[in-house]
């Protein structure tokens, strides 16, 4: 394997990444890459390393070996989470995490891309007219314009998820990491979330982890299957679903897990 810049056109490139939790290898020599503006879905049985993959990219977990290259040649290993966020990687957590004590609009405002998110620039920061419009537009697209002035803590589960997606949208991330966006949602909410993500993916790369196969079929173009900390296979949804290995490790086990 050549060491150097990522293959042309990759926004994120993981090379031989290993994560070791006290002997348990959550990721084991994983190689993974994504194109600019790609919508990728990662599936895999429990413990396959899906969330760890997001943790490694977003800086929450430091790999014990390997390289993580963002864009042309930015090595992400060893950088702090906020620094990585500043480079243009947004993350949406599995459980909705919004700032309950802030207004919906303030939540978005906080996430909004700024020239600097240091203490002193933030103290003096004021919204420009353009930014205001952008917030309104985002509020509209996530369907929360009417609740802009209410406290985020009072939103429903689905609304919180959308607010969080809105937050990563205004963050101007080039790469969005989304962990199980439709878990615990009603059918209508799931539908709306799917539309939102597709809209988001038009301008940036999105990496989605999802269990709901119906949802995966709805949004996915390319699917990556993780198994035991490595990539099992990769390809279009149909091909993946008919792959025997996938049937064996993933569908079989997931039935166990659901039971």
């Amino acid at each position: 394997m050549t060491v150097g810049a990522s293959p042309g056109g990759s926004i994120i490139y993981l090379e031989d990444v290993t994560v070791d939790f006290d002997g348990f290898k959550a990721l084991n020599g994983l190689n993974f890459y994504m194109d600019y503006k790609e919508l990728r879905v990662v599936i895999g049985p429990n413990g396959a390393g899906k969330t760890t993959l997001l943790d490694v990219i977003s800086g929450k977990v430091r790999p014990s070996a390997g390289r993580v290259i963002f864009g042309r040649n930015i090595d992400l290993v060893g950088r702090r989470e906020n620094e990585i966020a500043g480079l243009g990687i947004g993350r949406k957590f599995q459980t909705p995490s919004v700032f309950a004590n802030l207004m919906v609009r303030e939540n978005l405002e906080l996430a909004l891309a700024r020239s600097s998110k240091g203490v002193f620039p933030t103290l003096k920061a004021r919204l420009s007219g353009e930014q205001r419009e952008r917030l309104d537009a985002t509020l509209d697209s996530i369907g929360l314009l009417g609740q802009a002035g209410t406290r985020a803590g009072g939103l429903s589960h689905g609304e919180k998820q959308w607010l969080e997606i809105g937050m990563v949208m205004v963050q101007d991330a080039e790469l969005l990491l989304v962990d199980e966006p439709v878990a615990g949602m009603t059918d209508e909410e799931t539908e709306k979330t799917g539309r939102l993500l597709e809209g988001v993916a038009e301008e940036r790369a999105v990496l989605v982890i999802e269990h709901d196969m119906e949802f995966v079929r709805r949004i996915a173009r390319t699917v990556t299957v993780l198994h035991e900390g490595g990539v099992l296979c990769e390809g279009p949804v149909d091909k993946i679903q008919s792959d025997e290995r996938v049937m064996e490790v993933y569908l079989g086990r997931s039935r166990d897990a659901d039971a």
């Binding site: 977003s58 702090r80 989470e81 906020n82 966020a85 500043g86 947004g90 993350r91 957590f93 995490s97 919004v98 700032f99 309950a100 004590n101 802030l102 303030e106 405002e109 906080l110 996430a111 998110k117 240091g118 203490v119 933030t122 103290l123 003096k124 920061a125 937050m167 963050q171």
Partner: peptide, 28 residues
């Protein structure tokens, strides 16, 4: 009342989320 003040309240709510919004909670 400044945006930084909202970051402070946000830290009280969820430090991790603040971190992933691109702010360093430690600095604030």
């Amino acid at each position: 009342r400044s945006p930084a003040g909202r970051v402070l309240v946000a830290i009280r709510d969820s430090e991790t989320r603040v971190l992933f919004c691109g702010y360093s909670p430690a600095a604030f």
